[in-house]
Nucleic acid binder design. Structure first.
Lengths: 104, 104
DNA sequence: AGAACAGATAAGCATGTACTTATGTGATTC
DNA sequence: GAATCACATAAGTACATGCTTATCTGTTCT
């Protein structure tokens, strides 16, 4: 069940920070470390977890490995969230805006 | 940062099962245990975590405590997710449907 | 081929987490 | 008011997790 791995992956604040950074644009593991106080192996391990959850995907580029957000994982979160739409408060205007964006 | 507590709360499959059960309708802690093989203290602890994350709220009713989904937590997940809308694949039709619902 | 570099993997360790049993607290019933 | 019930809290334990240092793999450059 990958849903489990997604939530487990996002449960760690460091991993959410990495993911957020990647959302601004794909980059390699070394570039990702800049600004985040983290060792090389730790970053590698976090990326492996994010990758296993389908939140991130990698692509070898020479001796670098470029990482980028994988929409797959986000889609699964969206699906999970959609199950509980009956409870979303009407005041979440952000989501309405979002829907309009998607309808274009 | 409650965002952290939300994802940590949902990282546990038992807690997600509890939350899902509550989404079908509010009920007390004993009723929640039915069908889920879990001890009374464990259930109580899980509910405390879900409550701390803003995913669930409680209401004393005599010697029972009724639990129900708290939209607050779901709203925060939606907000988190909305930050990455640029990456949502267009094929998530479910969300479009959902937006139409909200526009009504 | 060998040095240098980007990154992954291995192994060990300290802390966190989910459970257990035991007990405490508040409300109801007899 | 004493027993009972619904639930919370305490304390202990086994396992998971995130880190560390050390080492390995794969690629580039001279």
């Amino acid at each position: 069940m990958i849903e489990n791995e997604i939530f487990r992956a996002l449960a760690d604040p460091t991993r959410r920070a990495i993911f957020e950074k990647l959302a601004a644009g794909g980059m390699n593991a070394s570039a990702l470390r800049e600004g985040i106080d983290i060792s090389q192996p730790a970053m590698s391990q976090h990326l492996a977890v994010l990758r296993g959850a389908g939140l991130v995907r990698e692509e070898r580029q020479g001796r670098f490995v470029n990482y980028e957000v994988d929409p797959e994982g986000l889609a699964l979160i969206a699906q999970w969230l959609a199950k509980y739409r009956a409870y979303w408060p009407a005041r979440i205007e952000a989501l309405k805006v979002l829907l309009k964006d998607m309808d274009q």
